[in-house]
Amino acid sequence: MTTPKIEFRDVGLRYFTPKGETQALADISFTVAQGEFVSIVGQSGCGKSTLLSLLAGLIRPTDGEVLIDGVPVTGPSPQVGFMLQQDSLFEWRTIAENCVLGPEIRGDDRFEARVRAEGLLKRYGLGDFLDSKPSELSGGMRQRAALARTMCLRPDVLLLDEPFSALDFQTRLSIADEIGGIIRNEGKTAILVTHDIPEAIAMADRVIVLSRRPGRIKSIHPIAFPSHGDRRPGSFAARDAVEFPSYFKTVWEELEVHVE
């Protein structure tokens, strides 16, 4: 049996504050295979960001274990790339300088990192903007620059925390399609957190539905589009696939149950 890329074993997380304890996550157990794309949906406050923070090594679980390649996560690792809701590009740096932030913090070779950053930015269509300031870029371009910044450390696990929610609807569709394609082509393992059900379905191989706080796994839905043959359609095409509406209905109902 091969070790899964990511494994949650009976993970629970409680936040401690002077006001009391908040159980954010409880009894979370699941695995993600190498190269798989998993979406996590749930209402706001159900612990989605918490789950990613655990994987990124920003916080430790209060119960259970989080493993990557069978090894418990003990802190941030260059192997794990995190894309946050805000692109958080540093406005005092150029795009290329923003892109090498990770390697810079890790103490990698600067020249090598710069070459890698320029290569990534060119591939993502930002070749003309290496020396631009973030304010000169549109929302979609900024998000692509943020992806390049994440990729610059060559992570093999990507965590995406509602990375498209700050974009307008049209940009959001095309950027999701584009970034989804990039991640698939490069064979990365990815976990996408969102509360947009169509987006979750269109991008993923599996959708995990979390219950309300404390977040528990309510159900897991494998997503496949046999109508498109063996190749998985891009997220744009997936939205038009014949299978899409029924997935949407199922996930929708799973979430709907919780509305009082």
């Binding site: 990124a56 920003l58 802190g75 941030p76 260059p78 794990v80 946050l84 958080s88 932030l101 890790r106």
Partner: peptide, 9 residues
């Protein structure tokens, strides 16, 4: 931005 820097360790 601080969280971002922390994800890079």
């Amino acid at each position: 931005k601080i969280k971002l820097a922390r994800t890079f360790g």
